[in-house]
Amino acid sequence: MLGLSVTLAHYLVVSALIFGIGTVIALSKRNAVAVLMGVELMLNAVNLTLIAFSRFSSAFGQNGQPLSGHVFVVFVLTVAAAEAAVALAMAVLVYRQRETVDLDRINLLRG
């Protein structure tokens, strides 16, 4: 309509923003579950970056072969799911012992 087209740079900027937001959440939130949500955002930003690079690569569409960036994303998704499962189990374990998942109050270890 206005002659605009979505280029690789657009995807990269958006994913960099999401990655930044995720990092800030992961580092600033004091609730363990909120930290995990931040990490999830970071991982999805990575996925967006990978897919964008893969789709805009000059080799895309030749031989009808999917590119390794696409494959990489599938692995990242799988690993992220496994990680979330372990993390939530751990959070539940800690919650049962102390009735909180506030990282400021989980402070037996320090010095």
Binding site: A32, L36, E83, A87, V94, L103, I106, L108, L109
Partner: peptide, 15 residues
């Protein structure tokens, strides 16, 4: 507590 702290910092590092 050690497990949870290790996991959270490990997850950020992996990302």
């Amino acid at each position: 507590e050690a497990g949870l702290k290790y996991l959270l910092s490990g997850a950020v590092a992996a990302a």
